[in-house]
Amino acid sequence: MKMTKIYEGAYQWIMYGRDPYKPDNIIDTNQYVVRTDKRCLLIDPGGIELFAPMLAAVLHHAPVDEITDLFASHQDPDIISSLGLWDQALPHAKLHAAALWEGFLRHFGCESIQYVPIADNGGVINLGSVELQIVPAHYLHSSANFNIYDPQAKIFFSGDIGAALEAPGKPVFVENFDAHVEKMRYFHQRWMPSNQAKRAWIDRVRGLDIDILAPQHGRMFKGDDVKRFLDWFEALQVGIAV
């Protein structure tokens, strides 16, 4: 699995993705890790098929007992169907996920890991040396959906927002925004149900200082491409299937 360090300071952000051994018929996903001196947060750790390559990759950066926190942006299988396996590997860890999805996510197996429910208005994940903000992104696309903002690293994990469907092995950053648009259009129009939710999210996110916008599928946006994405998304009509 490809590992890309996207922030290096008092702690690190690492992006994991482009797993060459991933079965062809499952969607490619990006996983993110925030590594502090003693703790490690896995953001959208992925589906069952990804558990082994993901844990093997994380072991390059953290020992098992320092993987203390998991975050699930929403309830989809590509986000967190590996939960039952993490539950065996990390019995003392915490899972930060929507309160609304607790009864659903527990179907994946969550007997040992502590479920930390996130209220609709978001919250924080305190990793000691860094405090991350949990930003509501409801209905984009899931009905209880959250993003993560790190004001120090200026990284915004946007979940499915900003996602693109493209061939495997592509670069991790957008290089030509205009060429990238068509890889995102259908995904956003079809998976995102609400223009109202989209406008509320854009208003909220425009107020944040972001260097990197990091989605769960496709490529990350950096620098001016972050604003380009927000402008493009604002103008896009979503919820096209009705």
């Binding site: 082994a52 844990l55 093997a56 072991l59 390059h60 950066h61 039952g84 396996l85 065996q88």
Partner: peptide
């Protein structure tokens, strides 16, 4: 079944993460 599955996957991790800095930490789990 879940535990058997976890054992199987952990063994896979152990095999593929041999060169990882923290590979030994998996042993206890």
């Amino acid at each position: 079944h879940r535990m058997a599955e976890a054992c199987k996957r952990f063994e896979k991790v152990a095999a593929s993460a041999e060169s990882a800095l923290h590979a030994a930490s998996l042993r206890e789990s």
